[in-house]
Design a binder for these strands. Structure first.
Lengths: 345, 345
DNA sequence: GTGAAAGCGCTAACAT
DNA sequence: ATGTTAGCGCTTTCAC
């Protein structure tokens, strides 16, 4: 017995024949293009229905568009991305566009592979989430296909950007802690080595925002930044170092929730308690932060809003490739939970 | 000033001309097909290099393959999926295939949309992760394109399956708790309503495995299953109910880590402690479980292995569409952490 | 071993 | 408003 040799796909020609019209007519109806009478539309629609016809995106792409939007995700593990994605798909679900995601997560090389793969597949537009590639590559991509960059500071005339105001987010945390009475507020940052990238990455902005906020509050003397990495391990090591200070901070602003998790671990290992001995705040308001057992004060980026804006801008750019680039900056909010409280001393 | 009207893409014709050969020759080199001398290969390779040529996948797809594998993910939030994905991409990164993911996560309708979109885009093969669609739809998809189904029990001649032995996983948990001295071991399951789906979903298998393991240990009398859902809320409510029993269980096996998180919350709210008053175990060994502050005993599914197997089977099926279907079942392992201990009573 | 030519399914120009 | 025709960039017969 043969495998049921998948019956030939229904094509636009079949539809045209069945509806007794030209393929052009069918194509016009498919694209809602000008030049088809209501009766024609109805006739074609019925034929499509009856035959169960679905256009082949690859073939469409050869002349027109593929109705496909590519989203490059740097690390699917980051609990912040699903919200962005929901925002994007939500904005696109009533259109003919389909979202497909590519795994970017392993540095410049992997990002280049994914972006090229998306371009080679004729995607109509790309949304790059928190890319680490150099600007030149981003511009190169944007010159080949409409592009929106999310979660990275730094403009370009070639692509739109959507992001969160990380400086404002850092200020929210510092302000909250200062209001509680803290003065010795330390910060654990992700150490960025690449000089060209340094100003564009959110981590650098958060660290800068921290310094600025401290100065604005007259706490210049208390500025204390530990450079590790945005990992649990980084938080753990950073906290170890801070707890060993002769003059311990009373609060720690971790640049990311996952860093805060490492801090919590180090604190409990040192036999100290949160927020009794140390207040801890994170960034991103991830699922971790919301867990009852953790209940971490954190900065919430409006992920859904970011995604929706990115999708909207991309659609606009697909329609008008030459339009001037737009930068959207959204305001984060602070979610206060149980890891922050007035200092005990 | 005009937008730099993206310079026409380099095509196979350009390469052929530049190398002074036919397009057929170039095509053969691209596909490592038979019928090209070493000199020809070298010449063509050089031309490709010099012109920076990359074949357009969409155009290739019209006649041959698109070199694209589609992976449908039900819920990007589930911390179990990244490992599967890593396994898949790892297995495919030395091939010409590119992985693109589609968001399935909102029920049958969303799954149908994504799978159709992938078929319409000419994908060469599909990996469906934990689909909720009815079997008929899965078979329909598999008849159109080579398919591997991951994380769902139930066979079909049309597609291969890769999964974890959930019955064995449940037995690991029950065995571990019994060994610690527990007898009153309760289980919180995800309530499945759809009768046709019931036996194929992992949650049902885990519940069944729990019952079986209890019986095997002579604990028939102690079998105690609460039906809620695989959510934090479900765990919270289930635990509330269990804690209100006149004869409280001394241990709870939650069908998923997220459920265990809800249980932990309810326990701490009741003023009780884990594992002092109640041992708690989860399933999936998610990032949550590993957090120092949580340290949840959990069952680890070999995600990477699952992904690698799925990718391997898919490649085989792409080469031999008619081959008999294969079922791979992997063994989970138990990761013991601090939420399980001998009962105090 | 090599290349000319005919499509793949669709859209875009160009008639009518 | 409708249909005819020529491609899009590639792979695949099928000659040589």
């Amino acid at each position: 017995m043969e495998p049921p040799a998948s019956p030939r796909r229904v094509t636009i020609v079949d539809v045209a024949r069945h509806a007794q019209v030209s393929t052009t007519a069918v194509s016009k109806v498919l694209r809602n293009a000008y030049g088809a009478s209501p009766e024609m539309r109805a006739k074609v629609r019925r034929a499509i229905e009856e035959l169960g016809y679905r256009p082949l995106a690859a073939a469409r792409g050869l002349r027109g568009r593929t109705y496909t939007i590519g989203v490059m995700l740097p690390d699917i593990r980051n609990p912040f991305f699903p919200e962005i994605l929901d925002g994007i798909t939500g904005c696109l679900e009533d259109t003919d566009y389909q979202v497909l995601m590519g795994p970017g997560g392993n540095g410049e090389k992997a990002e280049a592979r994914v972006t090229e793969a998306m371009i080679d597949r004729g995607m109509d537009g790309l949304i790059l989430v928190a890319p680490v590639s150099p600007r030149t590559h981003l511009s190169h991509v944007a010159s080949a296909v409409p592009t929106v960059v999310v979660g990275r500071h730094g403009h370009s005339p070639a692509y739109d950007t959507v992001g969160d105001d990380d400086v404002a987010g850092a200020a929210l945390v510092v302000g909250h802690l200062a209001e509680l009475g803290h003065r010795r507020i330390a910060h654990i940052e992700h150490h960025e080595t690449d000089p060209t990238r340094i100003a564009e990455m959110p981590n650098a902005q958060r660290a800068g925002g921290y310094r600025q906020a401290m100065r604005d509050l007259g706490l210049d003397e208390e500025i204390d930044v530990i450079s590790t990495s945005y990992t649990q391990q980084g938080g753990y090591e950073g906290a170890k170092e801070l707890l060993a200070r002769r003059r311990r901070p009373t609060a720690v602003f971790a640049g990311a929730d996952i860093v805060a998790m490492g801090v919590l671990e180090a604190v409990s290992e040192a036999g100290l308690s949160v927020p009794g001995d140390l207040s801890v705040a994170g960034y991103d308001n991830t699922t971790f932060a919301a867990l009852g057992q953790i209940s971490l004060t954190s900065v919430d980026q409006a992920g859904g809003e970011i995604g929706r804006n990115a999708a909207r801008l991309l659609l606009e750019r697909i329609e008008h490739r030459g339009k001037p680039s737009v930068q959207v900056k959204l305001s984060p909010t602070l979610v206060v939970r149980r890891t922050t409280a007035p200092p005990s001393a």
